[in-house]
């Protein structure tokens, strides 16, 4: 009974979300739509990052590398042969990549699959180490990808980057994928595999002693994250239409780390809330960069002021909600309805 009601409520809220997006795509200005797209893509990145970092407890710093792979692969596939021919001015592109052309959806999926394959191969050396060492190895991987994209000019066009990528990403694509990845990852977390992931996070040796193949479980988490991060990279590339190696620095990973820590390591719904807060919030704070009139004072506009305010807000959150907004808990309809009932009774 409750289960059925809860899934109906979930479906209803997804429908409501898409009705809102339908309204937004017709009535919102370009700037707002761009923010909505950003929220969806970052949500997808953060949720998949949280799977490996929060749920499985493996402190990995891989997202910028994986996003770059997904972005490059899918963009190279949607660009037409003529475009590629015109763009690769230093060194012509290697065959057969220069003539390969796929529709958007296929390109995204191939981008995700290539990233997942890289994740699969990377997992063998990466999961030989734990804790801080894991962070260092994956951080190094991000740098390798950046050096590769700068220097493998016949594949990536080097520091010139790729231009004129079709602006295919709209609200439907980004939110469709964001909702899809959220559903897949939450189902995974609530399955037997998800329990095993949490067991590994709490105590890896004990989990192995229970008969859990920890390498396999970590691999499932890592490859799933890689796939969705690759797809999100593809969506990002087709949103901003120009990509270059400088786009995928450690700063991207760092932003995602902020989001999952603010939302609560291991909490997917917390991540969703935190993404909206961080992505939208940092845009809202642009107001403070402009000159302001407070009472009779005039504050001159200081560029970068919002970053200072943003940091202060993050510190406040960490002081008062040390485990993040949601901790390790998830939003549940039961809890939400109980909360509403209690408020009515008061």
């Amino acid at each position: 009974m409750n289960k059925k009601r809860n899934s109906l409520l979930t479906i209803a809220s997804i429908v409501a979300l898409f009705l809102f997006l339908w309204y937004a795509s017709a009535h919102f200005n370009k700037y707002s739509i761009r923010i909505l797209n950003d929220i969806a893509i970052f949500m997808m990145l953060a949720v998949s990052y949280n799977l490996i970092n929060g749920v499985t407890g493996q402190f990995s710093l891989e997202p910028n590398g994986f996003t770059a792979i997904g972005a490059y692969v899918s963009s190279l596939l949607t660009l037409t042969a003529a475009q590629k021919h015109a763009m690769f001015i230093i060194v012509p592109m290697i065959h057969p990549l220069d003539t390969l052309h796929l529709p958007f959806l296929a390109a995204l999926i191939v981008g995700g699959l290539v990233t997942a394959l890289v994740g699969f191969i990377l997992a063998f050396p990466v999961f030989r180490v734990r804790g801080d060492y894991l962070a260092i190895v994956t951080l190094g991987f991000g740098l390798v990808i950046r050096v590769f994209s700068n220097n493998a000019i016949s594949v990536t066009n080097g520091p010139l980057g790729l231009k004129g990528i079709g602006a295919y990403t709209n609200l439907w694509w980004s939110w469709g994928w964001a909702v899809f990845s959220l559903i897949v990852i939450m189902r995974l977390v609530n399955s037997g595999y998800g329990r095993a992931m949490k067991a590994i996070r709490d105590d890896e040796d004990a989990a192995i002693a229970m008969g859990i193949n920890s390498f396999k479980i970590k691999m499932i988490a890592f490859v799933t994250s890689a796939f969705f991060e690759g797809v999100a990279g593809g969506l990002l590339a087709h949103l901003i239409t120009t990509i270059s190696p400088t786009l995928f620095t450690f700063f991207l990973t760092f932003n995602l780390l902020i989001i999952i820590v603010v939302g609560g390591l291991g909490s997917m719904t917390g991540t969703v809330i935190a993404t909206v807060m961080v992505v939208w919030g940092s845009e809202l704070l642009r107001v403070v960069d402009q000159p302001m009139h407070l009472f009779s004072f005039t504050i001159p506009g200081v560029p970068g002021m919002r970053m200072i305010l943003f940091s202060v807000l993050l510190i406040v959150i960490m002081l008062f909600a040390r485990e993040g907004i949601m901790g390790q808990k998830e939003f549940s309809w039961n809890g939400f309805l109980n909360f509403l009932r209690h408020r009515k009774q008061k």
Binding site: G192, R195, A196, K198, A199, R201, D202, D203, D205, A206, A207, A209, M210, G211, I212, G266, Q328
Partner: peptide, 22 residues
């Protein structure tokens, strides 16, 4: 294991479930 090493963030029932993983 020494020092118990229960899965602190799983419920008691889930811990038992992990014990019966296979």
């Amino acid at each position: 294991p020494e020092g118990r090493k229960v899965f602190a963030n799983l419920t008691v029932l889930e811990n038992l479930r992990m014990g019966g993983f296979n």
